[in-house]
Design a protein around this nucleic acid. Structure first.
Length: 305
DNA sequence: TCACAATGAACAA
DNA sequence: TGTTCCTTGTGAC
């Protein structure tokens, strides 16, 4: 999935597009017909994210909760070709947020009279008004909750720097990480311990701190845990700002630009099994843990394996 | 045409 | 620990 940074970006974008407006809601695919009916012709008040969960608060205490899972995505298009609610250009895809999508982007075939575009593929939920359309496909969760139900879900989630604040979140993070003997590599992925970290950020954060993924979370010092948290806060802020998971801190400005344009250059270890560690040259290892691929350098992340 | 992977998590056993 | 669900794009045949 889209790790936490994407979900915050989606929340920001949907809020920018739709907050304060009455929306048409439908389920072109037909798998969310009842839920869409609850939201149809209802005003969207605000949107926000906690970790990987997106919440959209509609009139009448109806809260849409969406979790993109491993390959969900939102496609957003505009009648005006901009992210503004007025303009003169033809409709186009503004952006695609969520799982990686290739061959997306502006569709030159779209003409102004074609807004909104026909849904393509399995669109679970379409939100629409005069200016914008947002299509949701492939979510692992898409449901309408009441405020109590939404609160219950939020309460069980670990801290999110952008919701709880850096300082309050840090204490909670240290508390929850210190309370589990689970390997740190798994604890960081547990959304009840900390919100928003996924498989990419997990691997990269561990490398950035030269931590053995298999060391029990509880064995780490408070100083180490605080440094992990602060690093996550910085990475998340950067990710929300740029939309890119850029986790390397060993690059000059030129290298950074290159890494931004090519995923292959963007990470220390993620997706680099068998390739040389960027720091020590030893081969990056890949282990499947809890059904997810965990990448690490057995030399830099001392004691691993 | 088909198998498969992908930034995830719930559930069963 | 293993299975299941969600959808799409790619690469091998």
């Amino acid at each position: 999935m889209p790790e936490g940074h994407s979900v915050h970006r989606i929340a920001n974008l949907l809020g920018h597009m739709f907050a304060g407006h009455v929306l048409d809601a439908s389920s072109p695919q037909g798998r969310f017909t009842d839920g869409a009916k609850l939201l149809n012709q209802t005003m969207l008040h605000r949107t926000y994210a906690r970790g990987k969960h997106l919440f959209a608060v509609f009139d009448g205490d109806r809260i849409l909760r969406v979790h993109l899972g491993i390959y969900g995505a939102w496609d957003v298009a505009s009648a005006t070709g901009t992210t503004q609610r007025a303009g003169a250009a033809g409709p186009q895809v503004v952006t695609s947020l969520g799982a990686p999508r290739k061959k997306r982007g502006t569709n030159p075939d779209l003409a102004q009279e074609n807004f909104p575009p026909e849904p393509v593929g399995q669109v679970r939920l379409r939100l629409l008004d005069e200016f914008f359309v947002a299509d949701l496909r492939g979510p692992t969760a898409c449901e309408v909750l009441n405020p109590d139900e939404a609160e219950a879900i939020e309460n069980r989630l670990g801290p999110d720097p952008l919701v709880d604040g850096v300082d309050a979140g840090r204490q909670e993070f240290v508390r929850r990480m210190s309370a589990t003997s689970t390997p740190v590599g798994l604890a960081l992925m547990n959304q009840n311990v900390v919100s928003g970290i996924g498989n990419v950020y997990r691997a990269e954060i561990l490398f950035r701190h030269r931590l053995d993924p298999f060391v029990p979370s509880r064995s780490l010092t408070d100083d180490t845990l605080e440094a992990l948290w602060d690093d996550w806060c910085a990475l998340l802020a950067e990710g929300v700002k740029t939309g890119v998971m850029m986790t390397r801190n060993d690059l000059d400005e030129e290298g950074r630009q290159l890494a931004f344009s090519k995923t292959a250059h963007r990470y220390f270890v993620y997706g680099r099994a068998g390739e040389p560690c960027r720091v020590c040259g030893r081969r990056v290892e890949l282990v499947v843990a809890a059904a997810r691929k965990l990448y690490f350098c057995p030399s830099c992340q001392q004691g691993a394996v």
